[in-house]
Structures are given as C-alpha cells and as structure tokens.
Amino acid sequence: MNSFLLLTLLLLPVISGCANQAFFSPSNNDMPSKEVVWLDSLSGNKIAYRYYHPTNPSSMPSPEHRGIVVHFHGNSGQMEQTQEKVAWLTDYGFNVITFDYSGFGHSTGTATDKDAYLDAISILNYINQYNHQPLFVVATSTGSNIFLRAWADNPIEIDGIILDSPFTSYVKEAQFILSQSPFGKLYDWFALVIMRDDYAAEQSLHRVPESHALVLHCEEDSVVPFEFGETLYQQLKGNKEFMAFDDCRHARAMTGDHPHYQQNIAQWLVNTEQYVRQNNREQATQMIAYNE
C-alpha cells in the first residue's frame, strides 16, 4: 500500500478528500470461480462474495458447525487472493465468507471509501441472518477501519472480532506513510489538507458494540504502525486480547507464512465459540437502517 499511496498523495491536486481513493488498489480476475455469487449493496453496486464450508463437517460439534467467520479484507487485491488469511479456518470447523468491496474483484462500481462503507453495512445486514449461531468477523488493515465504522452505525450482534494490523483514520495513516518517505516530516501535514475521515472509524469508536476482541499486530509493521493497533486495543470494550508478533510483515500473521500464529489465533476463536455457546447466546441486536 505505501508506495502507491505516497505517489498518489504527492501527485493529486490539493482538494479536500480527493486522495482517499489512493487507499484502494483493487485487482480483478477475468473469470469468477463458480462459487462466487453477488449481493445488492446500498452503494448501488453488486458485491461479489463466496462461502467456504468446513473441511471435515462430520467432526464438528453441531449441525451448524462452529459458526460463521466473515472477512473484511484490506485495501489491495481481491477476495480470491486475500482468502489465504481466513479460508484455512474451515479446517477448524468454521464456515467462512469472503467478499469484495465495490470495484474489487468481480464487484461492480468504483472503489471509494464511501462505497466500501455502504458495502460493509450491506454485508452486516446480510450476515445478520446467521444470528442463530456464533458469528465472527476478521478485518484486515484498511478492512478494520471500514468494518468498525459500519458496525458502529449498524450494530448487529457479533460474538467475536479479530482485527489484524488495524487503523481507524485515513488521515493519520496517510500522515504516517508520508512521514516514512525521504524528507517526509517536511510534508506529512499534506495529508491533513487532502484526506478526509468522513467514513473512518476513529470518531465512532465509542459507539462500537461490546464484543470479544483479538487485536493482532506485527511490531515491525512498516505500513501501519504498531502503536495504531495498541491504541485501538485500549479503546475497545469487552473481553479483549492483544497478540504482538516480532517476525512478520504487514497483515501476514494470519497466512501460511506463520502456521504457529495461525494455531494461536484459531485457538482463541475456538475458545470464544465455546464460551459463546455455553453462555446461551442472546438473539441479535435489532438492525439500524442506514440514513445518509
């Protein structure tokens, strides 16, 4: 993300908010796999999603298996590339849903912060149909920002969240990226002029519902600073845990690059699922309709 964002920030005219699109670097495939389906979004676009089933359903604890995990991916690629961060959870008995924001993969439209926000609300409305079983969200990097803001505005019941390499302000993240370039400290203020946080999570964190939460961050993350993850962790309500990693790159802790981390993360998820079932999960919160 950082080199593309830096170049775009430097080349865009100084018009407030115009640079937010620099956060989104979608890619597309020529042909979707047969498992890809589409959902109408509040953005006016059709967003593509895919459902992964547990690999060994006969060994699962209930007909519903362990529950649903929904992935909000980051700012680049598309779901059939980023699924490596979550599809392996099917080995632990979870159903997994991946999707693409507008303009990504096989979703229609253009990638913008507003459309991604509306897509996220649409996905939350969609997954609320699964509120009779444990429901979890994994949100990666920019996906954490998108998810948390949408969830604050549309607080369905979610039993557990995993935030990987998170940040909650487009402006502050852009400032950090600018500051990492040569002589960056001389013009990191530029982000304050051209970026916006209209659809960011930072000002809405006090409205994020209480849930079991796991925050992951690599200590040497060169894209999203470690302190962003620490700060967000401190602001979350509910039963929470922080996992700091010392030998990973940005947003790679949940991939096959680090199988030991995957085991620890899966164990947290299984423990949370078991706790949720044992404590008689309540019905989902009434959805709040989006009003612009």
Results as ranks from 00 to 15, higher is better:
240 K>Y: 00
266 A>S: 14
66 R>L: 10
86 V>M: 10
240 K>C: 08
134 P>Q: 11
47 I>Y: 10
172 K>G: 06
198 D>H: 13
212 H>P: 06
30 D>F: 14
141 S>I: 01
30 D>V: 07
182 P>H: 10
63 P>I: 14
191 A>M: 08
50 R>F: 05
33 S>Y: 04
231 T>P: 07
250 H>N: 14
42 L>D: 07
77 G>D: 05
105 G>H: 05
80 E>V: 02
257 D>T: 04
263 Q>F: 02
154 N>A: 15
215 V>N: 09
76 S>F: 04
122 S>L: 02
187 Y>N: 01
23 F>Q: 09
258 H>I: 02
164 D>S: 00
194 I>R: 02
3 S>I: 00
290 Y>N: 09
49 Y>T: 06
194 I>K: 02
114 K>T: 06
258 H>S: 04
200 A>E: 02
84 E>Y: 02
252 R>G: 01
77 G>W: 04
113 D>V: 08
195 M>S: 05
120 A>S: 15
257 D>G: 14
143 G>I: 11
151 W>P: 05
161 I>E: 11
79 M>S: 14
227 E>I: 13
184 G>D: 14
86 V>I: 15
173 E>A: 13
243 M>V: 11
144 S>H: 02
76 S>R: 05
207 R>K: 15
39 L>V: 01
147 F>L: 15
13 P>Y: 02
271 N>C: 00
126 Y>D: 04
137 V>G: 00
198 D>V: 10
233 Y>D: 03
118 L>H: 07
34 K>I: 05
23 F>L: 15
217 H>D: 01
112 T>P: 00
165 S>K: 09
73 H>S: 06
46 K>L: 13
60 M>K: 14
37 V>L: 05
30 D>G: 11
195 M>I: 07
133 Q>W: 09
276 V>C: 12
101 Y>G: 03
119 D>M: 11
185 K>P: 01
258 H>V: 08
285 T>G: 09
175 Q>W: 03
136 F>C: 01
236 L>M: 10
151 W>R: 10
255 T>P: 07
145 N>D: 07
149 R>A: 07
184 G>Q: 09
279 N>C: 01
252 R>C: 08
87 A>E: 13
60 M>V: 09
154 N>R: 00
114 K>W: 02
281 R>Y: 02
215 V>I: 12
223 V>L: 13
56 N>S: 13
44 G>E: 08
4 F>L: 09
19 A>D: 08
81 Q>W: 04
109 G>F: 04
223 V>F: 13
25 S>Y: 03
241 E>I: 08
132 H>D: 14
132 H>S: 12
251 A>T: 11
143 G>N: 08
91 D>M: 12
165 S>C: 15
292 E>T: 13
92 Y>V: 04
174 A>R: 03
224 V>S: 04
44 G>D: 01
148 L>M: 15
